[in-house]
Computed example of a mutant assay.
Amino acid sequence: MTTKDKKNSVRLIQKWVSDHPFAFVLGAATGLGLTLGILYLAKRRKFAFNKTASQMLPNLNMERYVFDIPGKDNNKQVIVEGSGECYSVKLNGKFLGTMWQDQENGMQWQTHDKDLQHYLADIAAAFSGAFSRNGYPAILKGTYPQIIQTEWKTDETLEVIISEETEMEVFTTFLEDEAPNLVDFEEHLDLIIKKAGNPYFKIIGIN
């Protein structure tokens, strides 16, 4: 396009704007609105991702273990939490009391709470195996509340079911980085991460 053609184009645009001032203002406002809308949505998506990602971070300052013990009719869920030498214990969501290891009595588990005494032997037995490969689900479920269920498929394969609202890719990224740091065993283990009823899964190898 020559300089003369460019000048003619500018004159035509200026004439159209002067003849249609309302349409020009409306078009400019619409364009600005779309631009701001796109920027807002992009910011919201980034904020949502960052918020989701931060929720995936495990709380490594608090020891937390989730496992089952046999009950009269069915298994009972136990949650053991502690940040020192004393651990609080919940059974099916109900607080039972606290327990600790007695250094003067062969490091056996002790409690002063009557409700906990009835289950102490079973809880201590399950808790003592939490750092083995077979006990690894207790650490996983205790560290990541997004995990709602685990199931052994083979001796070396553990299926991990996460909640429906959990972002799969974000969760597996964090788990892939952190899971090896939570193990205290040398045997190989494959984690199959998936959501209930969803065929998509991801495998994370440990050791």
Rank of each mutant, 00 (worst) to 15 (best):
L41H: 09
E81Q: 15
N61T: 11
P58E: 03
P70N: 07
A53F: 13
P70F: 01
A42W: 14
K76S: 07
V78N: 00
N61Y: 14
K43I: 10
V66M: 04
K43V: 13
L57T: 05
K51T: 12
N74L: 13
R44T: 12
F47R: 05
Q55M: 15
E63M: 13
K76M: 10
M62E: 09
A42F: 14
N50C: 01
M62N: 15
Y40R: 05
F49L: 08
F67A: 05
K51L: 10
K72P: 01
I69N: 02
M62T: 14
K76T: 00
V80K: 01
V78C: 12
K43M: 11
K51Q: 12
D68C: 06
G82I: 04
G82T: 00
A53H: 14
V80Y: 03
D68T: 07
K72T: 07
L60G: 01
L60Q: 11
Q55D: 05
I79M: 13
K51Y: 15
L60Y: 07
L57P: 00
L60W: 04
R64H: 06
M56A: 06
A42M: 14
V78K: 00
K51E: 14
M56R: 04
A42I: 10
M62D: 14
K46S: 07
K72V: 15
N75V: 10
N61G: 05
A48P: 04
N50D: 12
N61Q: 09
N75Y: 14
I79S: 06
F47T: 07
D68W: 05
E81I: 12
R64S: 03
F67E: 03
A48Q: 14
N61D: 08
M62V: 06
N74W: 07
N61C: 02
V80M: 08
V80Q: 00
I69P: 03
K43L: 14
V66N: 08
Y40T: 08
K46Y: 10
E81C: 15
P70C: 02
Y40L: 06
Y40K: 14
N59D: 09
K76H: 07
E63N: 15
N50V: 00
A48Y: 11
T52W: 13
G82H: 02
V66E: 06
L41W: 11
R45C: 00
G82M: 04
V66F: 01
R44W: 06
L57Y: 12
Q77V: 13
Q55L: 15
K46V: 04
Q77P: 02
N50S: 05
T52M: 13
V78G: 01
D68E: 13
F47W: 15
N61A: 11
V66C: 01
A48S: 11
Q55S: 05
R64P: 02
Y40V: 10
N50Q: 14
E63H: 08
F49D: 04
R44C: 04
G82P: 01
Q77A: 09
R45V: 00
L60P: 02
G71P: 07
Y65Q: 06
R44S: 12
A42P: 03
V66Q: 09
I69S: 05
V78W: 02
G71A: 07
L60F: 03
M62W: 04
F47I: 08
V80E: 01
L57R: 11
R45H: 04
N74Y: 13
Q55K: 14
A42S: 12
